[in-house]
Design a protein around this nucleic acid. Structure first.
Lengths: 93, 93
DNA sequence: CAAATATATAGACGACCGTCGATGTATATG
DNA sequence: CATATACATCGACGGTCGTCTATATATTTG
């Protein structure tokens, strides 16, 4: 298991997540693979990390796996960021 | 140079940043060292990474180096998070 | 200048990570 | 059942990372 920060820390994974998050509807793995110069197993590996970090979710239909950004994961990340925000900021704002 | 996500991806570094961000005033390295079971060079290394990621800033006074959370770094991180937030969320909210 | 303290840098080492090709698993089609 | 397609898992390999000890670089004090 890996933290959301760690998951987004890898450039390839950040780009993959960006692609998924930018979609209006879930995107299938084959389409993700087409967007990068990375092997299908590598993409699959990165998707697993993003999944375990709670950043994306999967739904299978037939042979395809559709990935979508997980709103809860992003919200949790933003909350943990706000916890990190120094008190001086809240006091000033 | 390392991204802010990557910088906060390491557990030790996240804890160090938490400590610094929780202080009402800049904290010196020796005090940071006292809070962890890590060698002084290791702490120094992590501080350098946080610095390069734009998350903390240093100010030297005499022999001491005082570290503080960099508001701009956190703000930038929050902005990049908002960019990642799927459109469905903004539409729904 | 010598000694002590605070911090940074250098170099090394083991562990972890990203990547790949090969293979496994499941679903659809003929 | 045989074949094709989509995706996941396995095993390996090179590079990166976190950690340490040793050392360098100030700065203060006597």
């Amino acid at each position: 298991m890996v933290s959301a920060f760690r998951a987004l820390g890898d450039p390839a994974r950040l780009e993959i997540f960006r692609l998924i998050a930018a979609q209006p509807a879930p995107i299938c793995v084959c389409d993700v693979v087409d967007h990068f110069h990375l092997s299908q197993p590598t993409i699959s590996h990165h998707l697993k990390v993003l999944r375990q970090a709670g950043l994306v979710s999967v739904s299978r239909r037939g042979v395809w796996a559709y990935y979508a950004a997980n709103p809860h994961g992003l919200a949790a990340l933003q909350e943990s960021l706000e916890e990190l925000t120094p008190l001086r900021l809240s006091a000033a704002g």
